[in-house]
Amino acid sequence: MNPFTYSRATDGNAALSELAAANGQAKLLGGGTNLIDLMKMGVEQPKKLIDINRLAPLAKIEELPGGGLRLGALSRNSDVAEHPLVRERYPVLSQALLAGASPQLRNMATTGGNLLQRTRCYYFYDPAFPACNKRQPGSGCGALEGFNRIHAILGQSDQCIATHPSDMCVALAALEAVVRVQGPKGEREIPFGEFHTLPGEHLENDTVLGKDELITAVDLPAAPWVKHSHYLKVRDRASYTFALVSVAAVLEIDGGTIKQARIALGGVAHKPWRAKEAEQKLAGSRADEAAFRAAADAALAGAKGYKYNSFKIELARRAIVRALGTLAGTPRSA
């Protein structure tokens, strides 16, 4: 690991000025479960670590007027997952969190850090591989012609086919959460769908967050109907591994007819993937398997597979049908 200076921030403004002063050379330290790992690998080499774990106001989970919920950036994944209001109003989020990592890691991992965790693409994670446009802009993409089993099938470019690995973020995409950030110019709110980016010009950035900005919280909007939600994670082991494909589904059904739907997919794209075409197909149709299949087809219409990951296209379709079926309580045919 590269040497760095360490500072323990005791107030938010001080942390922000330290961050700005470091000119992109500093990193904020949350739970450390991704950053420290990447520093051990030599992928991240910050000159300074600003430990924000003592910023108590950021650790709160608070009710918002009108029925929403604010998750402080330092709230731990385990606490969010087990929070009574999260379980009651946003079950898909609780389920997604509990499907991720391990109890130990969830006790450490924070809401803010989870949003910013980097891809688990092998070519990114291990600098022994020479080619990775995300790690070393212009070096190429090792995964394109390499071992790409865990890689993207939607929204990829020929520069990068990495996926965003978070479970939590898939639920937040379906819940239309809002990311609150603070920087030298003050506060701003970023709609969840705009927070993570698709592989474009600046592959080294996975999000629109500025290098001098700090995430303060994630807001979950009040929407009583999202209570009817479900997270399905498909993976190589029963537990403690990342998703091959995952689905966050939210349905409002009235008398057998779907009034509105939200679907987000994990493990398939550079960002948590909102399947709006599928949602449009579902709105107004009967809550039955035919409709779920049509929605799944719409969601995967633009999908493209590579040598080792084409199986994900059919897997994602079936996962969508299964998640919607579970949620609607409809029987499944084989």
């Binding site: 360490y6 790992d37 670590l49 430990d51 774990n53 391990s102 130990q104 890691l105």
Partner: peptide
């Protein structure tokens, strides 16, 4: 999980946690 210890009563992986953060 071989490095699991309890910090303030909660289990964590001590390998991914910097010692200086535990003041």
């Amino acid at each position: 999980g071989a490095c699991t210890v309890l910090v303030n009563g909660r289990r964590i992986n001590s390998c991914l946690s910097l010692a200086v953060t535990h003041e």
